[in-house]
Design a protein around this nucleic acid. Sequence first.
DNA 1: ATTACTAGTAGACGAGTAA
DNA 2: TTTACTCGTCTACTAGTAA
Lengths: 219, 219
Amino acid sequence: MSKYSSSLRELALLGAIDDYISISSRELGDALEMSQQTASKKILELLEEKLITRDLGARKQRIKITSKGIEDMKKEYNQYRKIFEMTDIVTLHGSVSSGMGEGGYYICQNGYMKQFESELGFAPFQGTLNIQIDQEDVGRLDLIRSMEGHLIKGFSSNGRSFGNVIAYKAKIRNIDCAIVIPERSHYMDTVEVICQYHLRRTLSLEDGDRIELKAICSE
Amino acid sequence: MSKYSSSLRELALLGAIDDYISISSRELGDALEMSQQTASKKILELLEEKLITRDLGARKQRIKITSKGIEDMKKEYNQYRKIFEMTDIVTLHGSVSSGMGEGGYYICQNGYMKQFESELGFAPFQGTLNIQIDQEDVGRLDLIRSMEGHLIKGFSSNGRSFGNVIAYKAKIRNIDCAIVIPERSHYMDTVEVICQYHLRRTLSLEDGDRIELKAICSE
DNA sequence: ATTACTAGTAGACGAGTAA
DNA sequence: TTTACTCGTCTACTAGTAA
């Protein structure tokens, strides 16, 4: 089943779900980076499995995916849905930590701040909230990194270079904010959060307070 | 990329996105119907491609998918989304044809009608609207067949057997109805539509009138 | 142009087994 | 128990080529 799935998927993307499409074995091979011969064989295998039907005309073959083929793809699609559909909002748990460390200084540079305003739609307060993510949620940071964030370009200032950072829209207790993560970063268990307001004062937060941070997919 | 995707997907389904999971090569092999040796090799390949990270403890390995791995899966997921996301509602164009042919008689059997009521939530009018689907939309019938429909069980009556049919919720000009398709059917270009109301009268339809039918995914 | 055969080679797989 | 090596087999691929 899974052996032919990429060929079947390519045919689906080319429109072979709704109707017959004209496609030569060479074209399919080129699209999938395989030889004409292999593509031809894949087509024969898909036919064998009754995942597609074909009109083999004199000039060019016409291919359409059968309902069995559609069902096969749906199975795989539903697997991915299980994996990804619950990840539009990723919740991170952690505790407030000392807010003006190196990370905070870094992010509060004017070169970043101007971009935050245009990218996120709010002028951030000149300071960050530092949150130490619970050990069990640290893994979710990879999930956030895989989300569509807002690229904030790096710059140079006073002979020091500041790299790209990525801002991910988020909410803390329903207040809009953003998690800012350096584009190239290794292991981390703390994140910097920027917000229109002074979060620490607005929410009366002190070091060690437990907090829930919801990263929101921007797609 | 696609070569390892099923292993990666399986790991994701087992929770290796959020955090490290404990899984032996044998367990992974069993889940994917491959040998322990092959599963072990797949894991090494995934590591090589930096799609997963691993703690290789003394007893059992712990595996987590990296952000690169998540991105790889998202690419494939997004391909499927392109294929399927616009298919929650499938629109069929066609024209009204003579309504009380063999198909209509077949479907109006009491054995079916009672089930329609409990499955669809409305008591159908004792008659069907017959729609001949345009040639260019006939291919979409396969898409509908791949949707989750309501199975209506067959029965025997007067020595004649009536097979299973499947009802797919649909709308005609915003009126709830259902497309009824025999479970085992070959090529067709006409469908039977049932509805709470007498559609032909309610919508003042005559043979040959153009009509748009929207099948709705019940999932 | 096409599709798809045959033949030779590269790569994937599982059994046996070591650590 | 684990993981993962070697090795034989069998499948999958591409080049050449026929129709």
